[in-house]
Amino acid sequence: MASIDIRNLRKKFGDLEVIPGFSLHAEDREFISLLGPSGCGKSTILRIVAGLEELTSGDVVIAGRNVTALEPKDRDIAMVFQNYALYPHKSVFENLAYGLRIRKRPEDEIRKRVTEVSELLQIQQLLQRRPAQLSGGQQQRVAMGRAIMREPAAFLFDEPLSNLDAKLRNHMRVEIRQLQQRLGITTLYVTHDQVEAMTMSDRIVVLNHGMIEQIGKPLEIYETPASIFVATFIGSPAMNLVRVRTDGNALVFPSGDRLSVERQLQGDVVLGIRPERIKLSASKSENSLPFEIVLVEELGAQKIIHGRIGATEMTVAFPEDVPLPTNGASVSLPGNYLHFFDPESGKRLA
């Protein structure tokens, strides 16, 4: 049982409060992503869990043991850094072996373990090289290997894929997830890339200014974002957001166009709808809105269409194989895919 418990964590750098209050419980074997924009405090939280940064108040409990006052070496964790942090003066073999050497394990055990791990990651042929002689992808693998050498209680990843090119990143994403599932080690994974968070995680923690905006399974977060911040951060292209006025059962767009909905709402609301949920057609039908196409981006698998409803900009994702309406396009916004947010607080309206 290696759960991770972070309780009422607060962190100040001098007078700057970076984490005003953060709690998280990660189950044994769970893969949790910390997702948020750069500078929101993801690394700080991870480094506090690792023991590399002192916390201002709160507790960190790993596998039922309160490790708050322990040094990193006594926490039984492994970490993969953004820049990999391979020891430049040691061979790949020694990089992998270092953790076991510190623990004074016998030489043949070390050899056996390095062989296992290097086969698992397919880096057997690199063992005698120095880190400087490896490509970025190979360095990434060695860093992974070093983390799994000791079968720690928890993995901590700090944007491990952000220095790789797009193709390799997609590949490593799958590989890390498979590895984690096979080894069954509880994982905290820091990233600012929503695709990584969506594809790899059991649960995602969306962070903004050191505070939790939402915790949930990837699809929950996609389908029911708890705030405007989460709604725009998850999904690509980003969700369309329009501030509209309500009038009984109708939403009134800035252009004056009206859309009737099933819900009763009051005052101004922010209406959100994902580009891929909008239906685009040539014919005007009941409850559809006139749509003026401005620009079309061809992506192969789909088209991204930028256009306007009146003066309101709107993005639509449209399947590739369907011909685009030439003139007089209109869009319909399916009622069950509409999101409503409070314009003041940005929170989702229940």
Partner: peptide
């Protein structure tokens, strides 16, 4: 945040 236990790292470490 009153009453909250403030963590102090061991003196020798600070």
């Amino acid at each position: 945040m009153s009453g909250e236990q403030v963590y102090r790292a061991p003196l020798h470490r600070r």
